[in-house]
Design a binder for these strands. Structure first.
Lengths: 211, 211
DNA sequence: CTTTGTGAAAATGTTCACAGCC
DNA sequence: GGCTGTGAACATTTTCACAAAG
């Protein structure tokens, strides 16, 4: 059976919520509670979870520990990924130190930049490498995910480098549509921060609430 | 007429694309071209734009300049917003220096933090203030949008401060669901970076492409 | 020949309503 | 009483197909 994409998006939220409450004494959580903490309806929670089997207990709710393990397995069966960041600027810095990535099993182990002054430096335990050595280092360090956090004008160069490499997936903080998709069919997730601002601006002006 | 939310999300992409090609010699752009640069279909582009009137020219396409102005007006009728960031850590720093916010009319003019060592410092032209003075400074500087970039544990305090303030909209980088929504009905947009990683991980493992 | 605008159809996603279980 | 699981109804969004226009 095929899992709807909307479901995948929502179960990341449920997992987040479960992880947060898991070390407490409570063993079970209801769809209602899960819904309140994730801004969805209780029916949606139940529908989404039903795709993976029946592990709710009528009148009691869901076993937090069990459910968390199940969802983690669906979302991140590999449990540990080596990740690199292209662009050692302010954003690259902040993302390297972002504590939640490690918690979720995504380890940032290398950065890449073109600036000779930065190359060789370290951010925490991650070293900054010359972007020209991208392919070689990716393979040596078994890095599969790249986060692009470069200025817009670096687009062409970055695309070429990635197209030739063995990277399997991309998070793109650049406001540009990457063409890599057509050349090598790998998943790309765009994070467009200005878009979020525009949408917020629209919602404020129109007096709406939906995000 | 009510504009579908999916349309609002997509026109931010079209606007981005238009802005990028606007200073070139080309005067017109087709729905096909716009679609290719934004990862949607040409039909979607036409449908979305049709909500705001007919400004396409059959056989020619859309006037880039005119369309950009129209979309900008829909998404950001105010054109200029004063924005603050709560949390002057690495992420707050990076966001303050994020060049695209200013380009889109979102000016980050203040940061807030609880750390006495940071209070009084400046990041670019933005000053770091004591988070206790939030409400007063928001009003004085006419700040309407807040970006939350604090660690998870600051949740309670931040929620109380915002609930009492005159902030009109929030971008939340915290992986927590804010309860402000139920108290003061203001729009909140969640940006959950770990979620993006989970989804990418899922897409890579399942060999899918959709983002 | 190219490209828009748009009804109609299809697909996807959400809410309702309730039977069944503890 | 409290809660899950799920068909059916509803709502939203995308795709198809094509007439009309430059």
């Amino acid at each position: 059976m095929d899992i709807p994409f909307a479901t995948i998006e929502k179960i990341t939220k449920y997992l987040r919520c479960l992880k947060r409450i898991r070390n407490k004494k409570i063993k079970f959580v209801s769809s209602q509670t899960l819904a309140e903490h994730t801004n969805v309806t209780a029916e949606q929670v139940r529908k989404d979870l039903a795709y993976f089997g029946k592990f709710g207990r009528t009148g009691t709710g869901y076993n937090i520990e069990k459910l968390a393990k199940k969802l983690e397995k669906i979302l991140n069966p590999k449990l540990n990924w080596n990740v690199c960041i292209i662009g050692a600027g302010a954003l690259g810095h902040a993302l390297t130190n972002y504590p939640d990535f490690k918690k979720a099993g995504f380890n940032i182990i290398a950065l890449f930049d073109g600036d000779p002054k930065k190359i060789g430096n370290k951010i925490g335990t991650a070293k900054i490498y010359d972007v020209k050595k991208f392919s070689a280092i990716i393979e040596k360090k078994e890095i599969e995910i790249a986060i692009i956090a470069t200025p817009e004008n670096a687009k062409e160069e970055i695309e070429q480098i990635i197209a030739k490499s063995k990277i399997k997936g991309i998070i793109n903080f650049t406001p540009l549509t990457l063409d890599i998709k057509s050349k090598r069919k790998i998943p790309i997730i765009d994070v467009d921060l200005s878009q979020k601002m525009y949408i917020l601006s629209y919602l404020i002006t129109k007096g709406k609430r939906r995000q």
